[in-house]
Amino acid sequence: MVLFTLLFQGLTIKPLVQKLRLTGDQPLRQQYMEFVARQVALERVLQHLKTNHRPGVEPEFYRYQEALLKDGIEDIQLEINQLQQEYPNLQSFITDQLREELLAIEANTYAEFVKAGRLSKELSPLLSELLHTGNEKVS
């Protein structure tokens, strides 16, 4: 009887917790990032398709592939919009992600200058200070 009870509870607790949305917003963030990654990947594929025409490939093939990619990107954007409407608290996560991307671009740029020998040391992230100051002005 004890074994049956443990087995039954073990099999039902995860679906129950998910249905009641008690797992926090980590799965939601992961789902959002998966949509963003798919969108970015399809946009890159589309860009490659537009700029790399190969001899001997029918133009109709390119148009068909482009239409498929555009439809896929549009579908993903609709999914992202739906997530944002259902979960308004997702907005702060999106903003934080963008801020991190901007800081990473700045840091990579400094690293490129150091690697090329144009700078002797990496600079401290100016963008971090600017973003922090900008947030204080908005508040």
Rank of each mutant, 00 (worst) to 15 (best):
M1R: 15
T5L: 14
L6K: 13
L7I: 04
L11E: 01
L11Y: 02
T12G: 01
T12K: 03
K14F: 11
K19Y: 05
R21Q: 11
L22S: 01
G24V: 00
D25N: 06
D25M: 02
Q26T: 09
P27R: 02
R29C: 15
R29G: 13
R29M: 14
Q30K: 03
Q31D: 05
Y32I: 07
Y32N: 05
M33N: 04
E34F: 06
E34V: 04
E34S: 07
A37F: 10
Q39F: 12
V40Q: 10
V40P: 00
A41C: 09
L42Y: 11
L42T: 02
E43Q: 01
R44N: 07
L46C: 08
L46R: 07
Q47S: 08
H48Y: 09
K50P: 00
T51E: 11
T51H: 13
R54P: 03
R54W: 10
V57H: 06
F61N: 00
Y62A: 07
Q65E: 12
A67C: 09
L68D: 11
L69Y: 06
L69S: 04
G72E: 06
G72Q: 06
G72D: 08
I73F: 05
E74I: 07
E74Q: 11
D75I: 09
D75G: 07
Q77F: 11
L78G: 12
L78T: 03
L78M: 09
E79D: 12
I80R: 15
Y87A: 15
P88T: 07
L90S: 15
Q91K: 13
D96I: 04
Q97M: 11
E100L: 09
A104W: 07
A104G: 02
I105V: 01
I105N: 00
E106P: 00
A107L: 10
A107I: 04
T109E: 10
Y110M: 06
Y110A: 05
A111T: 00
E112G: 06
F113H: 03
F113T: 00
V114P: 03
A116N: 02
A116Y: 05
L119D: 04
L126N: 10
L127C: 05
L127A: 05
S128W: 05
E129R: 06
L130M: 07
L131R: 06
H132E: 15
G134R: 14
N135A: 15
K137E: 10
K137W: 14
V138W: 15
V138T: 09
S139M: 10
